[in-house]
Nucleic acid binder design. Structure first.
Lengths: 282, 282
DNA sequence: TCGTACTTTTCACTGAGTGAAACTGCACTT
DNA sequence: AAGTGCAGTTTCACTCAGTGAAAAGTACGA
């Protein structure tokens, strides 16, 4: 890029940023509640001078990353969506997992979710829901907290100690921090330990409605956990312990299809009786 | 960006490109058959110097547009997928259309496709397929030709004269040009006229397998055609004329949900008897 | 040990990118 | 009809972010 131009630094953080990062910052301004933005908004939100924002937006639009509505506002373009559909952790896992998610859905007729971890949150990759199932809080492409959701707990449990420390110490980005000094760290650690050794997370919620979620880890070819699968049912409609084997079986089938070779031996015998999976009120 | 550096222009086209465009060019190198690329490949394919490509790739990776595998190769990242899921013409239409696609799928148990136009091709936004349905040629996120597919013909028929001229004159990007001098222009024009006034396209194929596709246009709030919906069935299993009302009804329901107010009046009476929809061998 | 291929760092040079200011066009008010 | 305000766009002199060849580092196989 070029210099900070003639003018003095307007914003303490922004001026030194490379062009590319500035352009990505522009892209990052789009969100579920801001799907269409005009120049002034983009400029204001990103902290870029209008002239600069305009130039970058033009390049992005020309390439197809953005599209322009008749009223002049910018929206995310199909070209970008198309490239993004090549994301292995996005559409990639989805393509492989979908048939199994469908099986699970056909059998239970409740919500089936697939997520991956991105930073300190989970991203919902796909969701199958009948119109008659309970209300859902999350949108495909949206983010979910790691601490309080079943998929989140699975991803967190298998995400490595580093991530857990990070999350238990600091805030988990958006959303309220757990407490002043890291309130329920010990509790969460215990939950995660249970999840990890049971191979499932069970989370009970009362908030949007009374539900139970059961989630299991999906392993990639390298052995690491690359995604998590869960099923969300109205509480007390189906006993959770009946769902556990279903969810685990589906997750294992998907893992196998991703090239994961399950560890041989007695894990089977160990895990099965240890049915007391992690749980957390609300 | 900065100058062409010390060296003389290496490639006649590339050197003058702005940084942002170069970065987008890098993104554009990913394709279905190239989902993971290493530095040398990216550098070679994009025509950028390795050092330059590396710097840009680092920025893209840092932001999350790309992710790096253990072996050093780059793949499209979840962050990009997440932003892209906000694309109105991508996941946007999908979200609204999905329930209707599902209905269509439940009733017929055959392939149901949803596409939008992007330049001179169609992009497949979603596909519902039972495992027992006929084989499919296209992948979600992939491109389909406008001339030879039912959805393509719908998008083309409603895409304006400019687009049609463009496509009939020149090549349609990838894929073989129709013929030396624009072979079957007249034929295609007639087909498109039929499609437009019938409100459906019917295409018969023999190639991967014998199938009939029936497609109908989806209108947006502004009245323009924003997407096309189609159903693909094995030939002679279901008579095409039985599918036409199903597909049209679904397309209209989706249009209404997108805020389209159907033109009042006798279109109904006109269109219905004009059942001879467009068709094309292979 | 050498060879090859890929990745990363270095560095002197320079034009691509910068942003304040001016201008245009539109909507709404006085 | 003249005035006000704001979003979008263009201009332009300045300069530092970006450049790419070359060199150094790394990994793997013969």
């Amino acid at each position: 890029m070029a210099g900070a131009g003639r003018g003095a630094p307007k914003d303490p953080d922004l001026p030194g940023q490379p062009v590319l990062v500035r352009a990505l910052t522009l892209l990052g301004q789009f969100s579920e509640q801001r799907r269409a933005l005009n120049l002034s908004e983009m400029s204001r939100l990103s902290g870029l001078a209008p002239a600069t924002a305009l130039r970058l937006l033009r390049h992005l639009t020309e390439w197809g990353a953005l599209e322009r509505l008749e009223d002049g506002r910018y929206v995310v373009g199909v070209r970008l969506w198309e490239i993004a559909s090549l994301s292995p952790r996005g559409h990639g896992v989805r393509e492989i997992a979908l048939p199994y998610l469908e099986d699970l859905y056909e059998v239970t007729r409740h919500h089936v979710l697939l997520s991956v971890r991105e930073g300190r949150e989970a991203v919902l990759i796909d969701r199958l829901s009948s119109r008659t199932a309970t209300e859902v809080a999350y949108r495909v492409g949206g983010r979910m907290p790691l601490r309080t959701t079943a998929v989140g707990q699975v991803l967190l449990a298998y995400g490595g100690a580093e991530l857990q420390d990070e999350l238990l110490a600091g805030g988990d980005g958006p959303g309220p921090a757990p407490g002043p000094g890291g309130a329920d760290s010990a509790g969460l650690r215990a939950v995660l330990a249970d999840v990890k050794q049971a191979g499932v997370a069970v989370v009970r919620r009362t908030h949007p409605s009374r539900t139970v979620s059961v989630a299991a880890p999906i392993h990639g070819a390298g052995g690491g956990v690359v995604a998590a699968l869960s099923i969300v049912v109205p509480d007390e409609e189906v006993p959770a312990h009946e769902l556990v084997p279903l969810v685990r079986a589906a997750a294992r089938a998907i893992s196998r299809n991703l090239g994961h070779r399950a560890k041989a031996s007695g894990a089977w015998r160990h895990v099965q009786p240890q049915d007391s999976s992690a749980s957390q009120g609300d």
